[in-house]
Amino acid sequence: MTPRVRALITASAISAAATAGYLTARHSLRAELLTVRHAATHDPLTGIHNRAGLSAAADTLITTAHTTGRPVVVVLVDLVGFKKVNDTHGHDAGDHILTVVANRLTGIAGPAGLTARLGGDEFAVITTGPATRRDAETWLADWLTHIHARLTTPVNHDGRHLAVGATFGAVLADPGHPAAVWLHRADLAMYAARAGRRTTAVFTDTTDTPADLRATDRPRDLARPTSPLAAAPTTRRAA
């Protein structure tokens, strides 16, 4: 082998090694960026979206659904009695309930829907209804009753059946406002449910909301239903 050929082989080997190293580093960087991005938009305990992740995806979901004529429902879910579970059974039990609730809500939302843990024991669901807006409010009332019963089925943990209570606030959304507006109105519906000692409420009035139902005017724990599991879920339209 001549020196020239040997030099060419060596140069080729060095180039191949450098290319392989570059590709490996690029793949590693891409994986790291994906991990960071996922961590920024997802809840570390439950694996579902956090508030930032929900906000980033919600507007697209609402717009896309309306192009196919489907109604979109935005639901806030606030667990009732969760602090008592933590205090009585420990944080492991509380974390287990949060994870089970997140899984149940993901199943309720379906593959096209979004679920998020907004913080603490508060969750959000954005999903679509049947492929027509006709009688959407009637469908929503029935659907809320069904999913409330499904969500509040007791959770098994270490041989114990732990009660899961929840208050729902919901609104039918459209692309006329950003998702943050619909989340706020769902929050108002939740306050209406608490004020009426009910488990669910639907916000239907977008212009004239009583001042005592505004989120900024009421502490979050005021007038929560005391026994949502004992009574059949009912729906009240907040006006």
Rank of each mutant, 00 (worst) to 15 (best):
V72W: 00
D92R: 11
S15R: 15
T127L: 12
L183V: 10
D92Y: 03
H42W: 10
T199C: 13
L162R: 01
V72R: 00
T207G: 05
R160D: 10
R185G: 01
L188M: 13
V5I: 12
T216W: 12
H38F: 14
A20K: 12
G196R: 15
A13I: 05
S227R: 11
D174G: 05
A211N: 11
L118G: 09
A109R: 00
M1R: 03
T10F: 07
W139Q: 04
F168A: 09
N103W: 01
D217E: 14
L118N: 10
V125A: 12
V72D: 01
L105D: 00
R104S: 02
V101E: 02
G21C: 08
T35K: 07
G165D: 04
M1E: 06
G107Q: 11
D121I: 05
H27R: 15
Y22H: 12
P3V: 05
G159C: 04
A18L: 14
V125L: 15
T132C: 04
L140Y: 06
A13P: 00
T63S: 13
R185D: 05
A109F: 02
S15P: 00
P71N: 08
R160V: 05
T63W: 06
F168M: 12
P228K: 04
P3I: 03
G81A: 04
G113A: 07
R194P: 00
G107E: 13
V202M: 15
T68G: 05
A238N: 04
R37H: 15
I108F: 08
T226N: 02
R117W: 05
I62R: 00
A211Y: 06
H27N: 13
P228Q: 06
R194T: 06
D59Y: 01
Y191Q: 13
L61Y: 00
D135I: 02
H146G: 04
P225V: 03
A189Y: 14
L54V: 05
F123A: 07
V72Y: 01
P175H: 02
L23F: 11
P154W: 06
T106R: 15
E122N: 13
R51F: 03
A136N: 04
A116I: 01
V85I: 15
H177E: 11
V164E: 02
G169T: 10
T235Q: 07
L98W: 01
R150M: 08
W182L: 06
D142G: 13
D43A: 04
T68A: 13
R214I: 08
L45C: 07
D187P: 07
T199H: 12
V80H: 01
